[in-house]
Computed example of a mutant assay.
Amino acid sequence: MSAIIDSFIAPPCHDDIQILWQDEHLLLIDKPSGLLSLSGKNPQNLDSVHYRLVQTFPGCTLVHRLDFGTSGLMVVARNKAINAALCQQFSQRSVEKVYSALLCGHVENDEGVIDAPIAKDPALFPLMSICAITGKPARSRYQVVERF
């Protein structure tokens, strides 16, 4: 397998991050689609959720990420102790994450489980692919809400 080269350059995202809730420990934000969660290795990808938030909330850290093209809610810790506690909850899978998606194509069953190892796809980076060699375990339960 070839090495992953981060040549992806994110187009500018002009949408704002909406802060839905905040206290001295946490932020709950709505990340827009088209914004990186973290700046990444490529210096041309400076703009990100983390980059924008540390301007106003120094010391904040991301507890989890959402893919570049995914919009949705994110939990942000405002200090290292809260980050450690929340990261432990995520790693122990005591946090339930729910995603809604509009798909193009046909899903045969109305519900099911996709259990396959996923990894960055060197040819299609930043997209992911199923890879039994370098992929990390991933399990998603799905349920069709509506068919068009």
Rank of each mutant, 00 (worst) to 15 (best):
A3S: 13
A3Q: 14
D6F: 09
S7L: 15
F8I: 06
F8H: 08
H14P: 02
H14T: 12
I17F: 08
I19E: 02
W21Y: 15
W21Q: 10
Q22S: 13
E24L: 08
L26W: 13
L26E: 07
L27T: 07
P32A: 08
S33F: 08
L35S: 02
L35T: 04
L36W: 04
N45A: 07
L46M: 12
V49Q: 00
V49P: 00
V49E: 00
R52L: 06
V54M: 06
T56D: 14
F57I: 01
P58E: 08
G59A: 05
L62E: 03
H64M: 07
R65L: 05
D67W: 01
F68K: 04
M74P: 04
V75L: 15
V75N: 03
A77G: 10
R78D: 02
A84N: 12
A84S: 12
C87H: 11
C87N: 14
Q92V: 03
R93D: 09
R93L: 07
S94H: 10
S94I: 11
S94P: 02
E96V: 14
V98I: 15
Y99M: 06
S100I: 14
L103S: 07
L103I: 15
H106P: 05
E108K: 13
D110K: 05
D110W: 07
E111I: 06
E111V: 07
E111D: 12
E111H: 13
G112I: 01
V113T: 12
I114N: 01
D115I: 08
I118S: 03
A119K: 00
K120D: 10
P126G: 05
L127G: 04
T134I: 09
R141A: 13
R141F: 15
R141W: 15
Y142K: 02
Y142H: 03
V145Q: 10
V145K: 11
E146P: 04
R147L: 07
F148T: 08
